[in-house]
Write a protein that binds this DNA or RNA. Structure first.
Lengths: 242, 242
DNA sequence: TTCATATAGTGTAAAATTAACACTATCTTC
DNA sequence: GAAGATAGTGTTAATTTTACACTATATGAA
């Protein structure tokens, strides 16, 4: 005579000491943003769980006993992009009772910013990882669309008041590229001259004295982000504000 | 023959299905801010756990299987302040492996704002709940000081760009009270005339046509927050910014 | 070589916002 | 009715933001 799943769960629960009864499945889900030729993308995976089969899904995993949630998020990033040391920010938890079809799973949402060119998409993941334009995503598995939207909101806010945009561009970039990044991600238009003046007065760019290559018009000068200067000033009344 | 605790844990783990192995203890901790006569306070409890015995501690609890983390936070608030429907904001998770002496416990930090006068401190909690001045707290149990600091940082940011300050004041208040709140919480000085002009141009206050009572000098006019006006404008380009 | 094309790069003036600042008004209490 | 205490009010200068159009320089084709 066999027992069914819910009976089994009851038996297990009876064996578990009191404080264990409050345990819950905890995951992290990563919204990995990349930017590519004027298009904000997010790394998605094809969902292989039942009511959401084939739909776009974010990349996530359980938080292990031996790691913090941050470490779990970093592990996922490393796995998906081959990359350590990338920009990562916690956003919010999602804990609706029935958000996951397999049972109670609470997740903590992170977003991160990577340069698409720098990633080595390890296909050993084998799971149809792909960069999808944020604008093309109308729905996702689970509550992942909601998570994506909130992370995008959070990205936009951070982009305006801290210099994280540089994480999405190559080390050397033109002012035009930087401006376009802001325009695409924030979905606004900026005035070229005003944008440039603002950056000039902030003093956070270094002219690397190189020109854009292989363009059939006047090439733009290239700059890099003055990390040291920014780090030295940021707690000293200096405000990044775009 | 008896078995020890760690053997018992092993036995329990062996019985648990694979996905259960990733389960973790999850709590919420609430930083409950109150404001009282020019002093920002936080609701604390005396810690009754070993290495932190007697130290200030935040108020928290396990997240139950049948509730979201938000609901858990609200339950705690109701329990501590007798109050439903109070301002509540999730801030961040804390998940260092050894943050809790009893084992792995991951927590999600919330902060909330209450009017101290409005709370009915249910003493059935029995646990030495008290309002403690934020400035007087040098250390706390667990990582709670870190949590408090982050929540204070988050409160300050929100105070500047959304009208949450009103949650800390009585319904009717004088402009002076409002200004002092900002000065105390943000730890800055504000110019009286400029502060008042800014509020006037934002149009978010209603003159209730009453005067301060029982003061031995010229009484101030009282105002209330124009919730309706703010709600109708906030998605319409209107920006609260103090 | 030169001309067309495509994008880079630059300055100024008006408008809006912020910052600095000191006196009069009105209530209570003695 | 005078003294004490806090409420309430306006103007000017400085700074920041916005709006706006032309010149410069590379490539590639004729």
């Amino acid at each position: 005579m066999s027992i069914n799943m819910s009976e089994k769960n009851e038996i297990i629960k009876a064996l578990i000491p009191l404080e264990e009864k409050h345990k819950t499945n905890l995951t992290v889900d990563c919204v990995i943003f990349g930017y590519d030729q004027g298009d904000l993308k997010v790394l998605t995976i094809e969902c292989d769980m039942d009511p959401f089969l084939g739909m776009y899904s974010l990349i996530g995993d359980f938080v292990k006993e031996t790691e913090t949630t941050n470490q779990a998020a970093k592990r996922i990033l490393k796995f998906c992009t081959g990359n350590d040391d990338i920009f990562l920010e916690e956003v919010q938890s999602f804990s609706e009772i029935n958000r996951h079809p397999y049972g109670r799973v609470i997740t903590i949402a992170y977003y991160s910013l990577v340069q698409i060119g720098k990633t080595k998409m390890t296909d050993n993941a084998g799971k149809h990882l792909q960069w999808t334009s944020v604008n093309n995503i109308k729905e996702m598995a689970f509550d992942h669309k909601q998570i994506l939207d909130l992370c995008l909101f959070s990205l936009r806010r951070s982009l305006r008041d801290s210099p994280i945009g540089f994480e999405l561009l190559p080390k050397k970039f033109s002012l035009k590229q930087l401006q376009t990044l802001y325009e695409v991600v924030l979905d606004i238009e900026l005035d070229k001259r005003n944008f440039r003046r603002k950056l000039r007065t902030m003093d956070i760019l270094i002219d690397v004295d190189e020109l854009q290559q292989e363009v059939s018009h006047r090439p733009a000068k290239l700059y890099k982000f003055n990390v040291k200067y920014y780090e030295s000033k940021k707690y000293n009344g200096f405000k990044f504000d775009l």
